[in-house]
């Protein structure tokens, strides 16, 4: 048996084994209705293995190890998300209290609740507004700075990079106290601008890195070439450089948006009413419809709602995000 063939057989069998373990564990341990999850997972793995064995050597370029691995990755990344969706569909306190993964009495009441709740609507509006504004400003400032860093020689360039690096490592919580004190003194506590300013500071380092990495890859000779060909400097910049730089700017914008959308610390410390409260902070302070209600399912529904934009962005722009993340080696 060739090593390639041997590895294919081994991994096909491994997939079948994983599948059987899932199905078996499900039958052995898990009550209805959650049992279905385990059976379906098991079936997917068994089928993978069966296809792997049946397909023979006809598709040698497909590594079965990686397919089983990919299935495990998807299982890993999506389980908690699917659980949130499932929790959000649970039909009432009784259903929630029953526990388990899948709802017994599915329905959309929690979504109705969440959307009837005006603080949450305000929070969505605030979060979109604040995130988009700070992303735009941050990307513009970062583009200038990154251009300087990537293309110019000037004294203090190292300083710019060091400041960016230091800010990226800065413990955000250490700032909220003094910022709260200052913001209340100058009267921008609980306002959009009060959140936009700190978001700017903390997204700039990432944007600068992502962008300067992109700018270094741009073949700037083309600009000169265009100028030689008679284009003005502005035309050369607009026609040649902008299209090349745009993907980088876009990537930086996405990663910046993620940061602003995700922020919690500034949100809970520097805002408090529907005037400026962002989504993550509003989630943390949900209460039930009355003092007797546990808001678990409603929080889950709200969580699903605020994850949808992330999902869409990730599906549409995954390639850009990955290249941005690894080029700048930053994190949002």
């Amino acid at each position: 048996m060739s090593p390639r063939r041997k590895s294919r057989v081994v991994w096909s069998l491994a997939a079948i084994a994983i599948g059987l373990i899932f199905a078996g564990a499900g039958l052995w341990l898990i009550d209805r209705p959650d049992l279905w999850l385990w059976l379906i997972t098991g079936t997917v793995f068994v089928l993978t293995g069966a296809v792997g064995l049946a397909i023979g050597d006809n598709a040698p370029q497909i590594s079965w190890a990686s397919i089983v691995g990919a299935e495990l990755i998807v299982l890993y990344t999506l389980t908690p998300v699917v659980y949130l969706v499932s929790l959000s569909l649970k039909g009432g306190n009784a259903d929630v209290n029953q526990g388990g993964f899948l709802p017994h009495d599915p329905g959309f009441t929690n979504y109705e609740t969440v959307f009837e709740f005006s603080l949450f609507q305000h929070a969505l509006f605030n979060s979109f507004g604040i995130s988009i504004i700070s992303t735009s400003i941050s990307v513009v400032l970062a583009t200038f700075a990154a251009y300087a860093v990537a293309r110019l020689r000037f004294r203090g360039k190292k300083l710019v990079l060091s400041v960016a690096l230091a800010i990226a490592m800065f413990p955000v919580v250490a700032l909220v106290g003094p910022l709260f004190d200052m913001w209340r003194a100058i009267g921008i506590y609980d306002t959009w601008i009060g959140l936009i300013i700190p978001y700017l500071s903390f997204t700039l380092p990432m944007s600068i890195w992502v962008l300067s990495a992109f700018f270094r890859e741009i073949p700037w000779e083309m600009e000169q070439a265009a100028e030689v060909d008679g284009a003005t400097a502005w035309q050369a910049f607009r026609k040649v450089i902008v299209p090349l730089a745009a993907p980088g700017v876009f990537t930086a914008a996405i990663i910046t948006f993620f940061f602003a959308w995700n922020d919690f610390v500034f949100g809970i410390s520097l805002s408090s009413t529907e005037r400026s409260i962002p989504v993550p902070a509003s989630l943390a302070f949900f209460t039930g419809a009355s003092q007797f209600d546990q808001p678990i399912a409603a929080i889950a529904a709200a969580s699903v709602v605020v994850t949808i934009p992330i999902f869409v962005i990730v599906l549409l722009f995954q390639r850009k995000i990955v290249s941005g993340l690894t080029s700048g080696a930053v994190k949002g």
Binding site: T113, V114, E116, F117, L119, T273, A289
Partner: peptide, 19 residues
């Protein structure tokens, strides 16, 4: 009472302008 309430309003800290 409870059934109605669930649909009623969930609220949070800073309070909603609803009500």
């Amino acid at each position: 009472i409870r059934a109605r309430r669930r649909v009623a309003a969930i609220a949070a800290v800073a309070g909603a302008a609803a009500g």
